[in-house]
Structures are given as structure tokens and as C-alpha cells.
């Protein structure tokens, strides 16, 4: 029974840890499918986290916080668009720039506005998204096997967790069952064809980036308003890059993205859980190895040893209309 409870706990934290990855990964999916590389997921999450926590604590409203997180994150996405779509700049350079501006400005503004060493004030009740307890969760808690699964795994998360997982089928539907999705995928594969059909490549790509901004905003809000109850400097801590890795790992497909993020979330949860305690057979695994595993796996995948990851064909190439 102890083992079972431990497994449930690890899975529960897997879900919690994979949510920001999943949101950021789906965010990246929209822009990369439209042919815009986005190294700046990390930075957009960070400004989202900061704006969310700051607005929530100033206006005492979680919803306003979420709104502000999305707004600021979209603004940063539009800067990326301005540089890489309108001015046909290098998308990777632009993404790197956004990450730096985000990292610096959240600390500077946080310190100037709240004077707590780059933190925002701790969020009180009503300023953060609380866990939703599903009906009957407490009643079934003691039922063996099903009880803990229902009470711990399924119930008791915040609304953003459910939203993140609902975004998976929604994104699939948008990409593969709507006209917008068809065009979005087309613009990532062959923008000239889309242009010939009389559709604006630039406007389509801008819309994809707005989707990206919205989702990274929610991802940031989750970090600072659900997981942590306040903004801490550099709180994304490379999650944007792991999400990027997950996106490649998922071969740019929404459902795969969910499984990739759950896998990387599980590795993280297991690393925290195992911290120093030896595993059967393998022996003691260094925490650092577990932390590096998502990156190692992605490199192996990229090298083509586990299937082949083929990015959208027009990815990273600015579209120049024939003149």
C-alpha cells in the first residue's frame, strides 16, 4: 500500500509539474507549425508569470492577474512577430533577445514596484487559483485503489490544470479540423502556396503568434499563481526550453506533446522524489542526471535514433513575397 501511495503521489506531482510544460509546448506548437521558430517561450512565460502575480496582488483578483499575464505575454509575442515577420529578422536572434528582456525587466520592475528582492507579494486567497475539489472526492478517499486515484490524481487541481489538458484536444481540433488550422499548417510548410491562394501570410503568422502568447501567458500565470503563490525571479528556470524539447520530442503533434510533457514532468517528479535514495538494480542515480535526462533524450531523438523529428518545412525562414 505504501508503494501504491508513493506512486500516486509521484503521478500527482507529475501532473502538476507537466502543466506549465504542456501549455508552453502547445504555445510553441502554434508558432512553429506556422513557420516561426520560437526560442522565446521561456521569456514569454516569465513575463506572464510576473504580470499575473503582480496584477493579482495589486487588484486582488486572480482573473485580472490571468488577463494581465495573457496581455503582456501576447505583447512580447507581437514583438517577436514584428521582428521576424514584418522585418524578416532572424527568428532565433529575436527569441534570444526576448528571453533576455524578460529576464531583466521582471527583476528590475519587480524590485522597483514591490521592493522584495524581485519577488511579488505573496498572493492571498482569491488572488490565486485554488484547487477545485470534485464532488465526492472526500467520500471515496478511503476506497482502495480508485479512491486515491480519484481524490488525488483527478480531483484537487486548479482550474488551469484542467484547462491545460483540455487545450490538447482543442488544439488538435483547431489544427486539423478547422480552416484556420489548415492554413496555419500550410503557412508553415509552403507559405508561397498560401500566398497564391490570396491569404495574407503575415497576418496568419501573427495570429499564430497571438495563440502562442495567450498560452505562454497562461503557463506563466500557472507558475506564479498556482504552483507558487507569487513571482520569484527566474522562476521559469529553463521550463521554456524543456517545452521546446518536448515539442520536438512530440514531433509537432498536440497529443504527442501531452505525452512528452507528462514524461518530462514525470522525470522531474521522480528526481524530486528520489533525491538521493537508491533505486533497485541501478543503484543511486545522481539528481543531476535525472534533470539532464529530458535534454539528453531530445538530443538522441534529434539525432534520429528514436524515430525522426521532421520540423515544419518553412520553419525559421522569413517569407519574402516575389517581386
Amino acid at each position: 500500500m505504501d508503494v501504491f501511495n508513493a506512486v500516486i503521489q509521484v503521478l500527482d506531482s507529475t501532473v502538476r509539474l507537466s502543466v506549465p510544460l504542456l501549455l508552453a509546448c502547445l504555445a510553441g506548437l502554434y508558432s512553429e507549425r506556422a513557420g516561426i521558430f520560437d526560442i522565446g517561450l521561456e521569456g514569454k512565460m516569465l513575463v506572464g508569470a510576473f504580470a499575473g502575480a503582480a496584477a493579482a496582488s495589486v487588484f486582488h483578483s486572480a482573473l485580472l492577474g490571468l488577463g494581465m499575464a495573457i496581455l503582456i505575454s501576447v505583447a512580447f509575442a507581437l514583438v517577436h512577430g514584428f521582428a521576424s515577420i514584418t522585418h524578416r529578422g532572424n527568428q532565433i536572434v529575436s527569441g534570444v533577445a526576448i528571453n533576455f528582456i524578460a529576464a531583466g525587466s521582471t527583476i528590475i520592475l519587480g524590485q522597483a514596484w514591490f521592493q522584495q528582492g524581485g519577488r511579488t507579494p505573496a498572493l492571498g486567497p482569491g488572488e490565486r487559483f485554488d484547487a477545485i475539489v470534485w464532488p465526492g472526492a472526500d467520500a471515496v478517499r478511503n476506497v482502495p485503489v480508485i479512491g486515491p486515484i480519484y481524490a488525488e490524481l483527478i480531483s484537487g487541481h486548479s482550474i488551469l490544470v484542467y484547462l491545460a489538458f483540455l487545450m490538447v484536444p482543442f488544439t488538435w481540433w483547431v489544427l486539423f479540423r478547422t480552416r484556420f488550422g489548415l492554413r496555419l499548417r500550410a503557412v508553415g510548410e509552403n507559405p508561397a502556396a498560401v500566398d497564391t491562394a490570396g491569404i495574407s501570410v503575415a497576418w496568419l503568422r501573427y495570429r499564430a503568434l497571438i495563440c502562442t502568447g495567450v498560452l505562454t501567458g497562461v503557463a506563466g500565470a500557472y507558475l506564479s499563481m498556482v504552483q507558487n503563490g507569487g513571482f520569484v525571479k527566474d522562476m521559469t528556470a529553463g521550463k521554456g526550453y524543456i517545452a521546446l524539447a518536448a515539442l520536438i520530442f512530440a514531433k509537432w503533434k498536440p497529443v504527442n506533446a501531452m505525452f512528452a510533457c507528462l514524461l518530462f514532468g514525470f522525470l522531474d517528479a521522480a528526481a524530486i522524489r528520489l533525491q538521493g535514495s537508491p533505486l533497485p538494480i541501478i543503484g543511486k542515480v545522481p539528481v543531476q542526471f535525472m534533470q539532464a535526462l529530458p535534454y539528453i533524450l531530445t538530443v538522441i531523438l534529434l539525432a534520429g535514433f528514436i524515430g525522426k523529428a521532421i520540423p515544419p518545412r518553412a520553419g525559421g525562414v522569413p517569407y519574402v513575397k516575389e517581386r
Partner: peptide, 15 residues
């Protein structure tokens, strides 16, 4: 400095 660095990358690089 991190902000300035980001802005320099943005304006001297991407833009």
C-alpha cells in the same frame, strides 16, 4: 544590463 543586452540583441540583431 540583461535588459540592455536583450535590447541590443533585438535592435542590432533581429531588427
Amino acid at each position: 544590463i540583461v535588459i540592455i543586452q536583450g535590447l541590443v540583441i533585438l535592435f542590432a540583431g533581429a531588427l
